[in-house]
Simulated assay, not measured.
Amino acid sequence: MCSMRRLLLDHIALGYYPYSELTAAPTIKIPSASVNLCLNIDTVSGTFSVHHARLFVEGVEVSHPEVYNDGRYIVHGLRTFLQPLSRYSCFDRSHSYHCHGDSMPTR
């Protein structure tokens, strides 16, 4: 298993990303707090109950956008847990996950 610290760093985006900005493009890559890793963001447009688009981070739906937003930091709630990021996350959609050297791969 990956360390909790590593998983947390993998899934912290470097920057300020309101839900409306994240859903403006069909796909984007955002730098992670882990060096040389990126979060892959996908948007599905349509008429949904609260928002006009559904947002997915690494395939996991953002179920609670902007749970916390103080103008400097934003926290988005997710439907389930995220897997460790691939070392190729900034380049492609590889499904080869790993734990960046601090433990054994998870898949």
Rank of each mutant, 00 (worst) to 15 (best):
M1N: 15
M1T: 14
M1K: 14
C2N: 01
M4Q: 15
M4D: 14
M4G: 11
R5W: 12
R5H: 14
L8M: 15
L8S: 12
L8W: 12
L9V: 15
D10C: 02
D10I: 10
H11T: 04
H11K: 02
H11F: 04
H11P: 00
I12D: 08
I12E: 11
L14A: 07
L14N: 12
L14V: 15
G15M: 09
G15D: 10
Y16I: 03
Y16E: 09
Y17V: 02
Y17F: 13
P18S: 01
Y19N: 01
S20W: 11
S20F: 11
L22R: 03
T23S: 10
A24M: 06
A24C: 05
A24W: 07
A25G: 08
I28C: 07
I28T: 15
I28F: 02
I28E: 12
K29A: 13
P31G: 00
P31C: 01
A33V: 02
V35L: 12
L37A: 09
L37D: 08
L37C: 05
C38L: 02
L39K: 01
L39N: 02
L39W: 00
N40Y: 07
I41M: 07
D42F: 07
T43I: 03
T43S: 11
V44G: 04
V44C: 08
S45R: 14
S45W: 12
S45F: 13
F48Q: 04
F48W: 09
S49E: 15
S49T: 11
S49P: 11
S49F: 07
V50P: 07
H51Q: 14
H51D: 06
H51E: 13
H52D: 13
A53K: 13
A53S: 14
R54K: 15
R54I: 04
F56C: 03
F56D: 01
E58T: 04
G59V: 10
E61P: 02
V62S: 03
V62N: 00
V62R: 04
S63L: 11
P65N: 01
E66L: 04
E66D: 09
V67P: 05
V67G: 05
N69R: 04
D70T: 05
R72F: 14
Y73P: 00
V75M: 06
V75W: 06
V75C: 04
H76M: 04
H76N: 04
H76F: 07
L82M: 06
L82K: 01
Q83H: 10
P84E: 02
P84M: 09
L85H: 03
S86E: 07
S86H: 11
R87M: 09
R87H: 12
Y88F: 12
C90Y: 05
F91D: 11
F91I: 10
D92W: 05
R93I: 08
R93D: 14
H95P: 00
Y97Q: 01
Y97G: 00
C99L: 04
G101S: 08
G101K: 00
D102P: 06
S103H: 14
T106Y: 08
